[in-house]
């Protein structure tokens, strides 16, 4: 080992620039130094910190995406509810419209029925009046007949004997019966 690596006693003078085997060796050493430094910094600092930041970025991005998705879902729900509300409004309008139409039809039917009933009532009243009128006429006629009979009876009683009286009565009765029959 002592023969493999050892320090020399004499050290050559320094220089600013040189192009020889020592320059090549120093280039090699500096390249190796740079590689070692890059490996150490990469392992200890750069890659772990970058990975940490990347994970944090991903986590924040995921949270933002989740929030965005939740917002989209909420907006979807809002749209759905708005749609439902508009459908309900439309249905309500339809129900109102149908109710209005039905009410209008029912009103028409009620009015028509009332008119019909009034007409029938009027008809019935007219008929009743006509029957009453007829009855009163009949009663008046009978009363007149009765009054005339009485008058005639009194007159006859004063003027004619029983035989003529019976004859006249029989004739009058026959006439009355005939008249009643014709009615």
């Amino acid at each position: 080992m002592q023969n493999l690596i050892f320090l020399a006693q004499a050290v050559p003078d320094g220089r600013v620039f040189g192009l020889d085997s020592q320059t090549l060796i120093q280039i090699g050493i500096q390249l190796l130094n740079a590689i070692l430094l890059a490996a150490a910094l990469g392992y200890l600092l750069y890659n772990p910190v970058k990975e940490f930041m990347q994970k944090r970025t991903d986590r924040i991005q995921k949270q933002m995406d989740d929030a965005e998705a939740a917002k989209a879902r909420a907006e979807e729900l809002i749209a759905e509810y708005k749609q439902k509300l508009s459908e309900i409004d439309r249905e309500r309008e339809e129900i109102f419209e149908a109710a209005r139409l039905r009410a209008a039809e029912e009103r028409k039917a009620i009015i028509a029925e009332a008119k019909q009933e009034a007409l029938e009532q009027k008809q019935r009243v007219s008929e009743s009046i006509a029957a009453q009128k007829e009855r009163l006429k009949e009663e008046a006629r009978l009363y007149i007949i009765e009054a005339a009979s009485l008058m005639a009876e009194k007159y006859i009683a004063q003027t004619i004997d029983d035989q003529i009286q019976d004859k006249l009565f029989a004739e009058a009765l026959a006439q009355l019966e005939e008249a009643q029959w014709l009615h």
Partner: peptide, 27 residues
């Protein structure tokens, strides 16, 4: 200050290697 001084000269397997001020400062 202007020159790159040599700090040590090391022999590794018979090869002479100058450990310069540059290499030491790099370390």
């Amino acid at each position: 200050m202007l020159n790159v001084d040599n700090i040590w000269v090391v022999y590794v397997a018979g090869v002479e290697i100058w450990i310069t001020e540059t290499i030491l400062n790099t370390w």
